[in-house]
């Protein structure tokens, strides 16, 4: 006998009230597909050229960690952070002065020394307002209390350490290929920081 409650649940879920009405252009602009290009319609040709140049430089720094290249120059205002680090929260843009972003209160004291550094910060307000990444930094422990890392963060077998210190959440990833990555997120609620870190790690580092 079919349960009446099951029928009600079926009717509820298949009704018309769950239409989300997302705009494909808006969604695609937030989702960086394979070899996704900047959208020329959103900027002048000069700005697009500048954005692509910055994206290429930062991508090289990200994919080939350990190079001795200096941090890239400040990006054009319209450069998409998704071009280098997929899954960033909306509103975060690459920061030109990485050291200043790290020192800003609350200072990100737990980052390892050296390595290739990049920073993303929100212009104003927003939930998570700073993300800093260090690729192939020196050996250093992370501050704060250790948090459990779900196994689905590392389908590639990477080793992860996740900690929470004050207003900042840190994660360090040791990939099987020998490279290591440290990410720090601060400025928003702890839950949001964790959700952002999960997205950044699984879409950029461990898959």
């Amino acid at each position: 006998m079919t349960d009446d409650l099951e029928q009600r649940v079926r009717r509820e879920l298949t009704g018309s009230r769950y239409e989300l009405g997302l705009d494909p252009d808006d969604v695609l602009a937030r989702v960086s597909g394979p070899k996704r290009r900047s959208r020329p319609g959103a900027a002048t040709l000069a700005t697009v050229a500048a954005a692509l140049a910055v994206a290429a430089a930062v991508t090289v720094g990200f994919l080939l960690p350990g190079t001795s290249e200096a941090p890239v120059s400040p990006p054009a205002a319209s450069a998409s952070p998704a071009a280098t680090l997929n899954g960033l929260p909306p509103g975060l843009a690459p920061a030109g002065d990485v050291a200043e972003v790290i020192k800003r209160a609350p200072a990100l004291v737990g980052l390892p020394p050296g390595g290739t550094r990049s920073a993303y910060a929100a212009a104003a307000g927003g939930g998570v307002w700073r993300v800093v990444m260090v690729v192939d930094g020196g050996v250093a422990g992370l501050p704060g209390g250790v948090l459990d890392v779900p196994s689905d963060w590392a389908p590639d077998g990477s080793q992860l350490l996740l900690t929470r210190d004050g207003e900042t959440t840190y994660v360090k990833v040791y990939r099987p290929d020998g490279h290591n990555f440290c990410l720090a997120v601060t400025g928003g609620p702890a839950e949001e920081q964790l959700a952002v870190l999960e997205r950044l790690v699984t879409t950029n580092i461990t898959r």
Partner: peptide, 23 residues
Amino acid sequence: YVLTGHREDAADLVQDSLVRLAR
């Protein structure tokens, strides 16, 4: 939306899932 029951969560979930799908 059916999975989450929240409009905002649903939009986030679509974005996160499509980022993974793109990769």
